[in-house]
Amino acid sequence: MPRPKINRKMVTPPKFKGFKPYGYYAEEQAPVSMLFEEYETIRLCDYELLSQSEVAQFMGVSRPTVTRIYESARRKVAIAFSEARSIVIEGGNVFFDSNWFHCKNCKSHFNNPENHKKLICPVCDSKSVLPVNHAQNNLTT
């Protein structure tokens, strides 16, 4: 049995569930499934412009692991681009650095540093608030 994977830390949940191509060749095809940690490495390496060793520190894994995750992420993006397939972000071994919540009313994300038991949205006071980490429990490896 292989050694279990270490959970990777994520800073923010992605603001979307996936991407879809459009245009003449963009027909319905099986989507490319990208893991949460792969999305996060692309974001940290290429958007926040961190070096891979810094990314490794943030995600709590070793530098070579980041390289592997990043490579796999890039290949998935390449497959999606060249075969005109959509990308779905799902699964992976991740946990979030703080407890994030999503307000269904005003669509904002927020955390709960003071651990209030009764959760209401700090912006619009709506009670329809969902924990983002909840989705994580349904993730498969």
């Binding site: 961190l50 703080s98 904002s108 994300h109 927020f110 700090p122």
Partner: peptide, 25 residues
């Protein structure tokens, strides 16, 4: 309340127990 927080800021704000609110729109 902001659109996005940087990596370093997030950990500091977490430490100081300041609530972060991200507005995606």
């Amino acid at each position: 309340i902001s659109g996005e927080f940087g990596m370093k800021v997030k950990s500091v704000l977490d430490e100081k127990k300041i609530q972060m609110i991200l507005i995606s729109d």
